[in-house]
Design a protein around this nucleic acid. Structure first.
Lengths: 159, 159
DNA sequence: TATTGTTATACTCTATAACTATA
DNA sequence: TATAGTTATAGAGTATAACAATA
């Protein structure tokens, strides 16, 4: 008998939605940034300097989505674009001081949010969560690549 | 340091997306149904007979989304609409034989998919997963209701 | 001929608003 | 005055296609 409340894919989607919405409200209310903008910011905060292509690969964003988010962030003066002289097709992106300031406010907020999420879990469950996420992620990817969708670009989900 | 790969909200969103896409491809390729249609089907398969309002509440779908999914499924002859004589504003929905047949093909497929997902997990991790999902779900809801979004209607997510 | 990145356009999905009918 | 449900419309968000520049 299929019961939605106990069906793992359903539970994952509902949980991820709730978590994602609550987190997004933190940074959108504070700085008016969208999800792609947040992802670009977080990626550049993590890696320092990289091309739009690599940002997209790491943040799982379509190249057109990256392009638009980067344009917006550059217009706000949060990002810097430096042409790569070794390959003029691409440019290196990095945070400008203003973007760095925003990132350094948001990153601890995000980490704090994640910490609150697990604070009531038993220590052994917290450890189990890491193992389980690894396991399920690998399994889901393996099941998926059985058909055709091996390397995807974008996002989208639900159920 | 915020690293996307180890950041719990990110991991949940990525995992839920992968799982959801793979599952959706199972029923969309087989029967050409959308996510809302699948949710309506699953809800009526589970409860037998209920109003559109209750389907939406259980399946977390907006009333306009339910309305359109129900219309489509009725046109296909998968669903039956019976006016409630005690309250003529609403109607009871239920599966017609054809819808029941589809449901009885898809439900085991979906359950099998979920079973494959966890088949490589250690038994104790499988048990932990249930506890963790309960815990995180409650916590995420609690954190969220701190602001204003107490009772929502819709979906949407990501990060 | 392939790749990075941009822009215009189209598409999908979901929500809002307005409405009907009933309570 | 409130609720169930429908329909039309609008709005996000994302993808496709076409393109420019470079390799």
């Amino acid at each position: 008998m299929l019961r939605l409340e106990t069906f793992l894919p359903w539970r994952l989607v509902v949980l991820a939605s709730t978590v994602s919405e609550n987190l997004a409200s933190l940074y959108s209310e504070r700085y008016g940034i969208t999800i792609p903008e947040w992802r670009v910011l977080a990626t550049l905060g993590q890696f320092g300097r990289m091309t739009a292509r690599d940002v997209g690969a790491h943040a799982r964003l379509h190249k057109t989505t990256v392009s638009r988010a980067v344009t917006t962030l550059c217009e706000r003066g949060w990002l810097k674009r430096e042409p790569n002289r070794a390959d003029q097709r691409e440019a290196f992106l990095s945070l400008k001081p203003r973007g760095r300031t925003v990132y350094e406010d948001l990153a601890p907020t995000a980490l704090g949010f994640a910490a609150r999420l697990v604070e009531d879990l038993a220590p052994e469950d917290r450890a189990a969560l890491e193992r389980i996420l690894d396991g399920l992620g690998a399994k889901a990817a393996a099941i998926g690549s059985g058909s055709d969708n091996a390397s995807s670009d974008s996002e989208s989900a639900r159920l």
